[in-house]
Design a protein around this nucleic acid. Structure first.
Length: 429
RNA sequence: UCCUCGGUAGCUCAAUCGGCAGAGCGGGUGGCUGUUAACCACUAGGUUGCAGGUUCAAGUCCUGCCCGAGGAGCCA
């Protein structure tokens, strides 16, 4: 089957394009159809003097997004968008589309989100979804090539993970309430004792009442977990992974990045080593740049923006205060107020894309932290077991896919980085 | 939950001091032999988010509510 992206291989040949009408123009007895087939957009020409009148008149019936099959010869022509065009010999119509809501002029976000099922057909959204697809493939390939096993963590769980206030609950037969997973990490930790290095790749759910450009209710997370890795090695791994997938997208999705008018030179700078700054240093830098942050607090949205505009490459902030971070992070051996962890911030104002840490591997210390945080001890029985039967130092991290897609594509809001975003006040379409 | 901004034609927006409800796109009709979000002419299209109030007169001012956007908190 012929696809528009392969046009250069078909010059002078007769082909059939199956697709949808993107737009049309006419100047009387010469008419232009812009046809898209998901791989590209190609201009078709209909010339009255060279066409059967019955075929020529089909132009008038065609509406935006009508589905059609055109037969014709591919030619190179500088006047055509994309450099190639098809001289049409025949037009077969699958369906005449109803009046299409998304016109070739500008629309507001609310309207576009209401029509997300149609919006994804547009040029920029198509490019974003293509980059997302390339990115996912690159991440999977990286893990495969580096000896990681893929494990699937459960989506229905007993409340265990991040925070009880942000759980989606559902009835689970005679066993009370279950909730949708907020993370697969704890299960990934169990899996390293079987497989050594693992990653999970799945949807996660957080019922946070967040309305910011960085938040989705349902988002996809990639979580690496590595036996016998300390926090330093964990950062080395993240750095290597991020460099790999960014460079691979630059290489294989170049055209889509150009469609998005992404500054590709900024992505080409994403090479090891990244910057690494301790939390202590970070607080000093932020204070100098006018942040009201005090030692002991986690970084706010404004702080993230300051940091990620300050550097031209991703930057790690490591070793946060214990009480700003999750219970499972390992206490710093020389300073019990700190934990061994790191957040990775993407440059150009895009903010946090990874949170990682070395995990607490000492049974008593972990139990202590669970009690300090007032977590339901009984739900963590199996997780504590991992510290009883051959506990080892280990580390891991979670990469937010949509934030990463947003950064690589250079788009403002994560809601465009996923085909059908789930937002606090939106579950349609 | 809190703060800020917004809601006018299918869509994007305008409407001066409170004084006749407007334009572009999209739809319809006609024209044009190389168009590039084509262009030109004509045309149809309105419960100004909802409910009250002030006024001779409200899209505009006041009160309440609904909906949306951005941000805070929280996080990937």
């Amino acid at each position: 089957m012929f696809y528009i992206k392969d046009a250069s291989e078909y010059i002078g040949k007769e082909v059939k394009i199956r697709g949808w009408l993107y737009n049309k123009r006419s100047s009387g007895s010469i008419k232009f159809l812009l046809i898209r087939d998901g791989t590209g957009i190609m201009q078709g020409i209909m010339i009255e003097s060279e066409l059967d009148p019955q075929v020529f008149s089909k132009f008038d019936d065609l509406t935006q997004e009508s589905s059609l099959k055109v037969t014709g010869t591919i030619r190179e022509d500088k006047r055509a968008p994309g450099g190639y065009e098809i001289t049409i010999k025949d037009v077969e119509i699958y369906q005449i589309a109803d009046e299409y809501p998304i016109t070739p002029k500008s629309h507001g976000t609310n309207f576009l989100l209401d029509h997300r099922h149609l919006w994804i057909r547009s040029k920029l959204q198509n490019a974003i979804l293509n980059v997302r697809s390339e990115l996912i493939q690159a991440i999977r390939d990286y893990f495969y090539q580096n000896g990681f096993a893929m494990v699937d963590s459960p989506i229905l769980t007993k409340a265990i993970g991040e925070e009880a206030a942000t759980l989606f609950e559902t009835d689970y037969f005679d066993l009370g309430k279950a909730s949708l997973a907020q993370t697969g990490q704890l299960y990934a930790e169990a899996a390293i004792f079987s497989l050594n290095k693992v990653y999970t790749f799945g949807p996660t759910f957080r019922a946070e009442k967040s309305k910011t450009r960085r938040h989705l209710i349902e988002f996809w997370m990639i979580e690496g977990e590595e036996a016998f890795y300390d926090n330093e090695m964990n950062m080395d791994l993240q750095e290597d992974l991020v460099e790999y997938f960014v460079q691979r997208v630059v290489e294989r999705a170049h055209q889509h990045l150009e469609t998005l008018e992404r500054d590709i030179s900024a992505l080409e700078k994403v090479r090891k080593p990244f910057y690494r700054i301790s939390y202590d240093e970070c607080v000093e830098i932020l204070k100098k740049n006018g942040s009201p942050i005090e030692w002991g607090q986690d970084l706010g949205g404004e702080d993230q923006t300051i940091l990620s505009t300050h550097y031209d490459k991703p930057v790690f902030i490591y070793n946060f205060p214990k009480h700003a971070k999750a219970f499972y992070m390992k206490e710093h051996p020389e300073n019990p107020d700190l934990v061994l962890c790191s957040d990775l911030f993407a440059p150009e104002g895009h903010g946090e894309i990874i949170g990682g840490s070395q995990r607490e591997d000492d049974y008593d210390k972990l139990l202590n932290r669970i009690r300090e945080e007032g977590l339901p001890e009984e739900a963590y029985g199996w997780y504590l077991d991992l510290r009883k039967y051959g506990s080892v130092p280990h580390s891991g991290f979670g990469l937010g896919l949509e934030r990463t897609v947003g950064w690589v594509c250079g788009i403002e809001h994560v809601r465009e980085a996923i085909p059908f975003p789930r937002l606090i006040n939106r579950i349609y379409p």
